[in-house]
Nucleic acid binder design. Structure first.
Lengths: 190, 190
DNA sequence: TACTACATGTAAACGGTTACATGATTGC
DNA sequence: GCAATCATGTAACCGTTTACATGTAGTA
């Protein structure tokens, strides 16, 4: 509930795709965003109850003869607007791995392409600053290397950060291009 | 205590560098591994107490006149051997970000270069399998793209995974070279 | 026969952060 | 005078995982 509980919004976003049970939500997440996000039943079921309480989702009980009952959850208007609010809200800084950005992009078709592009631009800028920081750290370590051989182990981890940040920036550029392409296409379509 | 509590081992590893207080440990972590690992006092102080109980560290109270007292912790023989055991133990799979590997490498000078190289080789192999998996997922999505335009958002997140995995593999290659270089140098030295 | 898939849920434990309490010293 | 640094610690809370409980249906 605490404003930046990602699992809360992920569940809401998955249910928004189509009415689903808790079991289905787990399956869906495993087959889509599990690359950068995961969830357990211990989170799903209590969260669904909370979502019902707040009025972001409703549910119908589906009785399938002698097979177990399913509670099929469906997002409400209220739920949709809350989801969109979260999707457009800027990604909190200091999320190095960027999983929040990826989650928002995965469900990006719910908001405008511009909003998605802005997320990526912001992230790229953060990464640039971060990379420059690592560059200077590396230079410093490299200078000390002659005095202390064990510095190599430190350099290894800093190099990981550099390569990592560089690859993220590359991905950002590609993604921005990809999204602006869609924007052009959508423009022609209408 | 639960065998794979990383913070527990990080604190132990930092204290192994030189006798330090809880406050120093925090400072040290902020200035070194904070790139991929962080910690709060709420973890440090209780963990230090536990480390004393188990006998992995001891401490002396340092009185500096009217400045606050410092508890300076020092690793024991028992602590050192436990730390080394952790450092050589293979990194648990399914750690996508690889922070455990980075931690072990950062403190890699405590164990043999071969052990460090093996960690990296194992990680690289895991990443290769993972990358091939993502490649086939992407091919599948790309095929569906013509039918469903929103597939682009899914492709974006998969692309991130691909680029990410590729960069990790590159870093692994570089790191393996770096470490084998040190190995050669050490060989000549002796 | 045994395992997997379907299906919902809870309780305990764990790892971690945040906020609080306390108080001296140093530098702007 | 105020903020930052030094220094230790606790309690509450949060998000998450794991283990458990319960039971049916289909498949190897």
């Amino acid at each position: 509930m605490t404003k930046d509980n990602k699992s809360f919004y992920v569940i809401l976003a998955v249910v928004s795709l189509e009415p689903m049970s808790g079991y289905d939500i787990k399956k869906y997440i495993e087959g889509s965003v599990s690359n950068f996000w995961n969830i357990s039943y211990g989170q799903i079921y209590p969260t669904l109850n909370r979502l019902v309480e707040i009025g972001y989702v409703t549910y119908d009980v589906e009785k399938n003869g002698n097979r177990p009952e399913r509670k099929v959850y469906c997002i409400t208007e209220n739920g949709i607007s809350t989801l969109k609010e979260w999707l457009v809200a800027p990604v909190e800084e200091g999320n190095p791995y960027g999983s929040e950005l990826l989650l928002k992009l995965f469900f990006g078709s719910n908001i405008s392409i511009e909003d998605n592009i802005n997320h990526v631009i912001r992230f790229r800028n953060q990464q640039s600053v971060y990379l420059e920081n690592l560059n200077s750290i590396r230079d410093r370590l490299e200078a000390y290397k002659e005095k202390d051989r064990n510095m190599e182990y430190q350099i290894i981890t800093v190099r990981q950060g550099q390569i990592h940040a560089q690859s993220k920036i590359e991905w950002c550029e590609e993604t921005i291009n990809r999204l602006t392409e869609i924007k052009k296409y959508k423009g022609v379509e209408k």
